[in-house]
Nucleic acid binder design. Structure first.
Lengths: 265, 265
DNA sequence: CGTGACGTTGAAGAAGGTCAACCAATGTGG
DNA sequence: CCACATTGGTTGACCTTCTTCAACGTCACG
C-alpha cells in the first residue's frame, strides 16, 4: 500500500504546486487574504493529458470545469466557413484557459492543445463555492479575465494593422514575455513546440508565408524559430520589429498598484 | 423654481431610462432580484456629450467611472507605430463602454466617439458599493464583460481570416443585430453615422478599398451604406456573405438558461 | 460662396496567397 | 533493420487582393 499512498501524496502536492502558479498570477494584480489564498490552493483538481491537435473543449459545448495549463500550450480556435482556422488566444502554463466558463459555461470557441499538453481540471462547483465565501476571489478572477481581454484586443491590432513580419515578431515577443523567459537584451532560448501551420493560424497567414517570414527574421539575425525551441538572437531588435510594448500584459504591476475594490480585506 | 425642478425631474427620469436599458441587457443573461435591479437603477450618473472623433478616455489614463452609451457610437482604438489606427470594439446605446474599468481602471486602449454621442458617466465608487452589497451584481457585470470578450474574439477571426467583402458584411450584420434592428429577411434600415474611414479602421482596411467594397455590396443588391443610415436590401444574402452567425452575441438566451451562480437569489 | 470633410475613381505596385513539387525527420510494421 | 508512410518544412512560379498615390467630385455649413 505504501507506494500507492506516496503516489497520491505526490499527486496532491503536484496539484498544489500548479495551483500556486495560478495563485501567483492572481496575486500579481489583486490582493487576497491568507484565507482566500488558501481557498484557491485547496481547490480540488485532477490532471489530464491532451494529445497535440486534439480539441478538448468543442464549440458550443457546455463545460463544468475550468482548465489550468500545467505544461504545453493551448490554443483557442475559431474558423470561417471555408475551414480556415484562426487561433484567437494562446494559453501558457499557469493560465486558466477558460476561466470565463465559470460565469459563461457554453463555449463560444474551441480549445485545442497545440502540442502535447497537461492540464488540471478544476470543477466550476468548487470555484463557485470559493467565490461565494470570498467575493474578493470573484474580483480577482474577473480581473484575470480582463487581462485576457486586453490581450485579445492587442491580437486584433496585430492581425488588422501589422504586416506579416511585425505580426510574427509581436507574437513571439508576447509568448516570450508571458513565459517569463529571461528577456535580456542579448540572446536567450525558450521552448516552443508549435508548427509553422499553427503560427500561421495564430497570425492569420498561410504556412508558406510564415516559412518565408521566419527565414527573413533569421537572416536579419533577430530570431531562429525551430520546431522545438525559439532562439532569440536580438531581443531589442525583435521588440522593435514587432512594435511590442508589454504594458498591455500587465505583468509588472507594483505591489501598491494591486487592487481590491469590491470588498474590504 | 418650478421649471428647474421639472428639469431636474426629467433629468433623473431620463437617467433611469438609460440605466433601464443597461439593466435589460444584464437581465437578458443573468438573474437579479428586485432589490438588485433597484440598486442598478439607483446608480448615480451624469450625462455628457462627446463630439465626433474626440477621445474621451486616453491610453493609459486611469478613470474613476464607467461610461454607458446613451446615443451614438463609441469605438475602442489602438494604433501601431505608423499611426495606423485599429478599432477593436464598437459600443452601441445600452452598452457600458468600459465596464472592465471597474476592476481595471487603467485603460489599455483609448475610447473615442465615432459620431456625436451622449454618454452617462457612472462612478466606479457607486458600482463598487452596489457589488459589495449584492455579489450577484458583480457576477452579472463580469458576465457582461465576457460577452464583450466573445465579440473581440470574433473580431479577430474577422480581420484574420475573411476577405474585405466578408469582413465588412460581418461588421454590418453584427451592428444591425446588436442595435436590435428588425432583421427581417427582406429589407430594413438602421441609423449609422460612421464614415468610410472609420469602417476601414474597424475592418483593418484602407478607406479607398472600403469604398470599392461598399460599391460592390450595393451592386450585388445586398446593402446600401450611406453616410447617415444603412439600408439593408437582402439580409439573408448579407448574412451569407459575412458568414454571420449571431450565436456569439448571446442575445437570445432563454429565461431558463440565464445564470446566477455565485450567490443564491 | 468658399472651405473642409468625406466620398469616388483610376493606375500602378507590393504583400501575401495559391499551387505544386520536393526535402528532412520521425515513426511504424514487417 | 529496412521500406515505407506521415508530418512538417522549404522553395519557386504565378496570381489575386489590397494598398498607395493622386486627382477630382460633392455635400454641408459658416
Amino acid at each position: 500500500m505504501l507506494p500507492l499512498a506516496v503516489g497520491v501524496m505526490n499527486m496532491r502536492h503536484a496539484d498544489r504546486l500548479d495551483l500556486e502558479r495560478f495563485l501567483d498570477r492572481l496575486l500579481s494584480r489583486s490582493i487576497l487574504t491568507d484565507a482566500e489564498q488558501e481557498a484557491i490552493l485547496d481547490l480540488p483538481a485532477h490532471l489530464a493529458e491532451i494529445k497535440a491537435n486534439r480539441d478538448f473543449v468543442g464549440l458550443r459545448e457546455t463545460v463544468d470545469h475550468a482548465s489550468l495549463v500545467v505544461d504545453g500550450m493551448i490554443g483557442r480556435f475559431d474558423q470561417n466557413r471555408n475551414g480556415l482556422r484562426q487561433i484567437t488566444a494562446i494559453h501558457l502554463p499557469g493560465d486558466m484557459a477558460n476561466l470565463h466558463s465559470v460565469v459563461q459555461p457554453q463555449a463560444t470557441s474551441a480549445l485545442q492543445a497545440l502540442s502535447i499538453t497537461t492540464i488540471l481540471r478544476v470543477p466550476h462547483a468548487a470555484i463557485r463555492t470559493a467565490t461565494a465565501e470570498f467575493p474578493a476571489i470573484a474580483e480577482a478572477l474577473w480581473r484575470d479575465c480582463m487581462v485576457d481581454a486586453a490581450v485579445l484586443s492587442q491580437w486584433i491590432i496585430n492581425v488588422g494593422r501589422r504586416d506579416a513580419q511585425s505580426r510574427i515578431a509581436h507574437l513571439l515577443c508576447e509568448i516570450a514575455t508571458r513565459l517569463r523567459a529571461p528577456t535580456v537584451s542579448g540572446s536567450f532560448t525558450f521552448r516552443f513546440g508549435v508548427t509553422q501551420f499553427q503560427v500561421a493560424d495564430a497570425a492569420g497567414l498561410t504556412s508558406v508565408h510564415v516559412n518565408r517570414v521566419l527565414r527573413g527574421l533569421r537572416e536579419q539575425g533577430l530570431v531562429d524559430v525551430r520546431k522545438t525551441e525559439v532562439r532569440v538572437l536580438d531581443w531589442a531588435g525583435l521588440v522593435a520589429v514587432g512594435e511590442f510594448n508589454k504594458n498591455y500584459l500587465q505583468t509588472e504591476i507594483l505591489p501598491e498598484e494591486r487592487l481590491r475594490i469590491l470588498s474590504p480585506a
